[in-house]
Design a binder for these strands. Structure first.
Length: 678
DNA sequence: CAATGCATAAACAATC
DNA sequence: AGATTGTTTATGCATT
């Protein structure tokens, strides 16, 4: 199915966003895989046999998940990503641009992942919240499942013991184990959902890590894929597993234990670990000897002991103190077939997870590599003109974070490179307070605003990226889009907030600017109406105001159009979560979607002097109709990040004081702004 | 370096 | 009276 996805299209060489759009377009079907139902449906039939398998597995899963999280966090810390994020375009299937097979490495991305990525790119805070909620729901489900199974397990444990006493032999146990495995698969799926979800979030984080430093593209990521801890963990598990495998099934427990005990390296004995252990990269044994050692080294931090209970899968026995826990461990979880079976199951689970993780990493890497290459290669911008970089950074921003300057890497080697320095940490707060920033729009380059907005509508709506147009242009656009070609001031406000996420904060600032522009420019004519006053546009004046400069330079236009696309909106929630994890994250204020505007319409509009407003719907419904792209292989210039990201906390502080409306971010958050235009 | 364009801030008045 | 709308001035930055 997935291959079908990638084999179905022809891709514009330049557009990462197109790729994502396309992928997203095809991702609807795979989404069904996310349904946890199968687990439930099968659980009843298997549960009787699944004594501890699930709990063991869950246990290991949680450990591995933590490990994976650690891994991903470390990846982020390495500031690798060079990925730009595509815009989410689920509402505009018409905009889907086919992806060429050549561009893709079909095996690297699963539909699920793709969809998740797509769904989570350019997330608005609301979207992310939903996702997080979903994840929480998943986790909740799992918890409930776990509890349920533990109950079942207690009963089954009794049965099992009875069976054993009654002379049941390993053979039957193996059968049980097999079924346990089957059940594990189910739970594994669920776990994978969570993991992928997490992974996606982390990817998002990766993607949001922004360029600015040409020299550090993907290598760090590739090399840093596997944190030391995880690698070690892997090694441990693998070696242990192989050790176990090498022994007869009947004696595996003994051998396994022997291996553990005899292991000289403390870190070589951990078969079961809890999240804490994995997080710390500490490995410990569950054998008595090892425990004592572990205890000495890390007092009361036994992987199998936490919150006063035994963490042995399916046990949960309450242990007053660590000593009693050790006693309990030695007495209840001594070497026997049961413990051995649990270990085996666990190892298999771990291996599966490792495989899955490896695959995911591979895919991620391939994706990033692919995107990196793609975005890099087409860049042939004749001039360093870039829309975003043309934006003026505020003084404070520049001073505060010189490295964060969104300068366009016009070199082919530095496309979407992550910024590894500069404002290393941008807090959620700072992200939200992108506040009054002085920046220059590229409006002067005459990018056809209507087509740009139309093409990137979803992007602008969700990403807090400042549209690369002047207030005057935006106001004009708002007015022209209205049926009556006239709007009240409030309607103009609403258009701004509705069309651009960016204008959902710092209302006082930009509203003032809007009013200022309306009054200042002759092209805006105030007309007294029955209900009050409306604003109209005097196109002649407007055209006077903006000399047409670049009609003849398509590449410039292209650059303009694509430039702002590579910025990724910082996901507030994501950032918050990262902040919670103390992950130094440098993110951008915007996430990009390189939706290249429809150049044809762009040029047309350009030539027409934008006199005749192009219907935005028109461009919406014609995805790949850009002749210009065909004629001129699009050169996507690696545009710099939105300067906002470069702003950094300092800028925030400096501007915050000036902004009377500084803290009114939510002014428009939930405000329905649909009165006009509809 | 000056001119220009734009963003931002703010004072102020008129109106709702 | 307070909020909104509209005008105007000032300032700073970037581009030309």
């Amino acid at each position: 199915m997935f291959q079908c996805v990638f084999s179905s299209g022809v891709l514009q060489p330049h557009s990462t966003s197109c790729l994502f759009k396309h992928l997203f377009y095809h991702s609807a079907t795979p989404a069904s895989q996310k349904q946890p139902e199968p687990i439930y449906s099968k659980k009843t039939e298997i549960q009787r046999q699944t004594v501890r398998a699930h709990s063991v597995k869950l246990f290991v899963f949680s450990a591995l998940q933590v490990a994976r999280q650690l891994l991903l966090q470390q990846q982020q810390q390495q500031q690798v990503s060079g990925l730009k994020s595509p815009k989410r375009n689920d509402k505009q299937p018409a905009l889907q641009v086919p992806v060429s097979v050549a561009m893709m490495t079909p095996q690297v991305i699963t539909p699920q992942q793709m969809q998740q990525i797509l769904q989570q790119q350019v997330l608005s805070p609301q979207q992310l919240q939903v996702l997080l909620q979903q994840q929480q729901a998943l986790m909740l489900q799992q918890q409930q499942l776990q509890e349920f199974y533990k109950k079942q397990q207690e009963q089954l444990q009794l049965q099992l013991l009875q069976q054993q006493h009654a002379g049941k032999q390993p053979k039957e146990q193996q059968q049980v184990a097999t079924q346990q495995l089957a059940f594990q698969q189910q739970l594994l799926q669920m776990q994978q959902l969570q993991q992928q979800h997490l992974l996606s979030l982390q990817r998002q984080g990766l993607l949001t890590i922004q360029p600015g430093q040409p020299a550090l593209p993907l290598q760090p990521l590739a090399q840093g894929m596997i944190p030391t801890e995880l690698q070690q963990l892997w090694k441990e598990v693998t070696s242990a597993h192989s050790a176990e495998e090498s022994t007869g099934s009947n004696h595996s427990s003994l051998d396994l234990t022997t291996t553990c005990v005899s292991s000289s390296a403390p870190s070589k004995t951990s078969l079961i670990m809890n999240p804490h252990a994995s997080t710390n990269g500490q490995l410990s044994v569950h054998t008595p000897k090892r425990e004592s050692l572990s205890h000495e080294e890390h007092p009361h931090s036994h992987p199998l002991y936490g919150h006063g209970v035994c963490k042995w899968p399916g046990c949960e026995a309450v242990c007053e103190d660590f000593q009693s826990f050790l006693k309990h461990l030695n007495s209840e979880h001594a070497l026997d077939d049961r413990s051995t079976a649990q270990c085996r199951v666990q190892m298999q689970v771990v291996q599966q997870l490792e495989l899955q993780l490896a695959k995911d990493k591979e895919r991620l890497q391939a994706m990033m590599t692919h995107l990196h290459v793609k975005s890099t290669e087409p860049k042939a911008a004749p001039q360093p003109l870039n829309l975003v970089s043309s934006v003026t950074l505020s003084k404070s921003a520049s001073e505060a974070s010189p490295q964060s300057l969104p300068h366009t890497p016009t070199t082919p080697t530095a496309p979407i490179t992550p910024v590894t320095q500069g404002p290393s940490v941008i807090t959620t707060t700072s992200m939200h307070t992108v506040g009054p920033i002085r920046r220059r729009y590229s409006d002067k380059y005459n990018v056809p605003i209507s087509s740009d907005i139309a093409q990137n509508q979803e992007f602008y709506k969700n990403a807090e990226v400042r549209p690369p147009f002047t207030y005057a242009s935006l106001i004009r656009q708002a007015i022209l889009e209205s049926p009556e070609k006239q709007l009240t001031l409030n309607e103009i406000y609403n258009w701004f907030t509705r069309m651009f996420a960016y204008f959902r904060r710092n209302a006082a600032t930009w509203k003032n600017a809007v009013r200022h522009n309306l009054s200042l420019h002759k092209c805006f004519v105030r007309v007294e109406n029955v209900k009050g006053a409306v604003w109209t546009v005097d196109e002649v004046e407007f055209q006077k105001r903006r000399p047409q400069k670049i009609s003849g330079n398509p590449s410039l236009i292209k650059n303009m159009q694509s430039s702002h696309a590579y910025c990724t909106p910082l996901n507030a929630a994501l950032q918050a979560s990262m902040a919670e994890n103390s992950i130094p994250l440098y993110t951008t204020a915007s996430m990009g979607n390189p939706t290249l505007g429809n150049l044809a319409s762009a040029i047309r509009e350009e030539l027409n002097g934008a006199m005749e407003h192009t219907n935005s719907n028109e461009s919406d419904s014609s995805p790949g109709r850009s002749p210009m792209q065909a004629v001129h292989p699009v050169h996507v210039k690696e545009e710099p990040l939105d300067p906002e990201e470069a702003e950094g906390p300092l800028s925030l502080v400096t501007t915050a004081n000036h902004s009377p409306d500084f803290d009114h971010d939510r002014d428009y958050e939930d405000e329905p702004v649909n009165e006009d235009m509809e």
